[in-house]
């Protein structure tokens, strides 16, 4: 599938891969091995569900452009999470992503004086660049390394400020290392995130009391059961800028590639305390379509 490239993508191509001619570009050929594009995270980046990985979204490699779209729901005792988004992967080098998060406070909304079923919303614009390395190939001791930025815009600023946040928008910075250790059938990811986000930003950024950026960790381990099935666990540390007892996040997940293009992910997630309502453990379900 060939077509004229949109201008911003042309700029990206020129920036990262000048010698490549436009007619060499493949669209949606699906060259990646199944599942090696990861699954969409709650922030719209490609990764393991909660944790961002160094993967580039879509199923294309060095000579192509891929894309993916996803919908995620998380059912918790006191809250309902829904997020969706799209991303594009260019030459297995650059990932651009957008995600919308909708966090339904249900009865908690009433308790907090926001109103029954008040929904906190946030837009996240992400960009990730693969610096070097390959998840599958190359030196088995050298992981794929990527850096990323996620610009987050909380659409309910007054609520964020009311709970003590400093700002209603902020930017996260990530460095990720991911490798598939074939001998053990294990994919391992480690990500360091420099962030000031409270509950990913749904409760704003930093605190009026002066708390700001901190370094947080995201780790994932996934075991390949087959070409199409993996099970794994993730840990994501989080700051507690607002002093509301914000907890680290944890999940146990299973992902299955129903077809080469469709991946379903189900997880048990423990999101700890959210806005003083504790023990938010529940079910995570996500569907991803990728080309």
């Amino acid at each position: 599938m060939k077509s004229i490239l949109p201008f911003p993508i042309c700029l990206t191509l020129i920036a990262v891969h000048a010698p490549l001619q436009a007619e060499d570009i493949e669209w949606f050929e699906g060259d990646k091995l199944v599942l090696t594009n990861g699954v969409s995270t709650v922030e719209g980046t490609s990764g393991g569900g909660l944790a961002t990985w160094s993967t580039i979204a879509g199923r294309e490699l060095e000579n192509g452009i891929g894309a993916s779209a996803h919908v995620t729901v998380i059912e918790l005792p006191d809250y309902g999470w829904q997020s969706h988004g799209v991303s594009i992967g260019v030459l297995n080098r650059v990932e651009l992503s957008y995600a919308r998060q909708n966090f339904d406070t249900r009865d908690v909304g009433t308790a907090l004086g926001l109103g029954q079923g008040f929904t906190l919303n946030q837009d996240i614009y992400g960009a990730k660049v693969r610096l070097f390395g390959d998840i599958v190939y190359g030196d088995p001791h050298v992981p794929q390394i990527s850096i990323g930025v996620e610009h987050k815009r909380n659409l309910d600023g007054p609520v964020a400020l009311a709970v003590g946040a400093q700002d209603d928008e902020g930017t996260d910075y990530t460095v990720s290392a991911t490798k598939l250790f074939l001998r053990q059938s294990l994919l391992v990811n480690a990500t360091v995130r420099y962030t000031e986000a409270n509950q990913l930003g749904l409760l704003g950024f930093g605190s009026a009391a002066g708390e700001g950026y901190s370094l947080e960790f995201e780790g994932s381990v996934a075991y390949q059961l087959s070409r199409r099935a993996v099970i794994g666990a993730e840990l994501r540390t989080k700051p507690d800028n607002l002093g509301l007892g914000e907890d680290d996040w944890f999940d146990l997940f299973a992902a299955y590639a129903v077809t080469d293009n469709v991946t379903l992910t189900a997880a048990y997630v423990d999101l700890g305390s959210i806005a003083t309502f504790e023990d938010q453990r529940g079910a995570f379900l996500s569907a991803q379509l990728a080309f």
Binding site: D134, G138, Q224, R227
Partner: peptide
């Protein structure tokens, strides 16, 4: 993918398939 298909047809367990791939993948260099 073709090697995986061939190994699958021969009923080689997936973990064992990956062990062979672990020797081959670094040869990409």
């Amino acid at each position: 993918e073709n090697l995986q298909l061939a190994m699958g047809e021969a009923d080689v367990p997936f973990a064992a398939q990956n062990k062979l791939l672990s020797k081959l993948a670094p040869m990409s260099r």
